[in-house]
């Protein structure tokens, strides 16, 4: 039964979604959301899952949280098989999904949270104390008597965050927990998460996020996934070190509409991303060697671009992502129209 000491383990997890015939007109009938995903997470770890939209992050969490069956492959949470032992798994887990407005509208924040604690058999006075403490963390202490339908989206999100920690689960799944929250709150919650784990050393968190710095700051290890496959899985530091042999430059260029030809297509450029800012383009380029820079600068000038600044920098997790996935997070987000 308890097959190993891992908090989470998956073995060749595969999940295929089939669209209904009439819905799939002209589109693909089958979506392979997970395509052979295997990883394991030790107890006490804060494990990050990174990937562009549609990579399969939420699907992974749903399977681990017993809400979705895998098409094939197996997964264990707290040593229990999520498919055959789902009821038992539910005693060990908690889940928070970001960007959600769930909650019973007629109940107050406190009632919603208290009700949830009752499913776990937590004594009322213990629950109330925890609720107050956690609400203070997310800055909702003075709103505990407010009904849910009077809350803003972000406030509901904060309440859901509290719900996740309220029951102090052994294994907690956080699916983009800071999605849609303001910068200050997101920062506070990140601090809280790492503090919580330091205080509860036997607990395990699996976190998905789009915020690279969040993963870099929090996670002991990260898995980078794209199109349902794990492309890299290690400690952020290790992944970054592997990139250090490459040269990473950030260029700010004015008077250039698109850097694809001038930078992206140049010899020696292995990956690149661009984002627009007020005064021009911010371009991050991973070059195979410093020597390739001369050619890039020449072609930028030839295309009419004006170099505002140039910086060689240490690799970040974002660079790792770019390198591994082949395109930037931001590019993807913009294409998908989200964020």
């Amino acid at each position: 039964m308890v097959s190993d000491s891992f908090a989470i383990r998956t073995e060749d997890l595969r999940r295929v979604f089939r669209a209904k015939r009439r819905e799939a007109k002209g589109e693909k009938r089958e979506v392979v959301a997970l395509d052979g995903v295997s990883f394991s997470v030790d107890r006490g770890e804060l494990f990050g899952v990174l990937g562009p939209n549609g990579a399969g992050k939420t699907t992974t969490i749903k399977i681990l949280a017993t809400l979705l069956s895998p098409t094939s492959g197996r997964a264990w949470v707290a040593g229990l098989d999520v498919t055959t032992d789902s009821k038992a798994v539910r005693h060990h887990i908690g889940m928070v999904s970001g960007g959600e407005t769930s909650g019973y509208g007629l109940l107050t924040i406190e009632e919603n949270l208290w009700m949830f604690s009752q499913f776990y058999g937590i004594e009322t006075n213990v629950a109330r104390k925890r609720i107050q403490e956690l609400l203070a963390v997310v800055g909702l202490a003075d709103r505990s008597r407010t009904k849910i339908y009077h809350l803003s989206t972000g406030m509901r999100q904060k309440m859901n965050f509290v719900r996740g920690f309220l029951t102090e689960p052994e294994i907690l799944f956080l699916d983009e927990p800071t999605l849609g929250l303001d910068v200050q709150t997101a920062h506070t919650l990140r601090g809280f998460v790492s503090g919580w784990l330091a205080e509860h050393r036997d607990r395990t968190i699996l976190l998905t996020t789009h915020a690279m710095h969040e993963a870099d700051e929090l996670c002991s290890r990260v898995a980078i996934i794209d199109k349902g496959r794990i492309l890299a899985c290690d400690a952020p530091g290790v992944l970054k070190r592997e990139l250090q042999r490459d040269a990473i430059f950030r260029l700010r260029i004015a008077d250039l509409g698109d850097a694809r030809a001038a930078v992206g297509a140049q010899p020696g450029v292995s990956r690149f991303t661009q984002t627009r800012s007020d005064d021009g383009l911010n371009v991050d380029a991973i070059l195979t060697s410093d020597g390739a820079l001369t050619g890039v600068l020449g072609s930028v000038q030839a295309a009419g671009g004006r170099l505002l600044s140039l910086e060689k920098r240490e690799p970040t997790l974002e660079d790792v992502f770019l390198h591994v996935v082949g395109h930037g997070f931001d590019d993807e987000a913009r294409e998908g129209g989200s964020e």
Binding site: A65, T66, L67, K87, R90, H91, I93, G94, M95, E100, T101, S102, G103, Y104, G105, F116, F119, Y120, R163, T167
Partner: peptide, 13 residues
């Protein structure tokens, strides 16, 4: 409507 069924299912209910 409430978006809570999945949380009910993920809990020991």
């Amino acid at each position: 409507h409430y978006g809570m069924l999945k949380y009910v299912y993920a809990a020991p209910v």
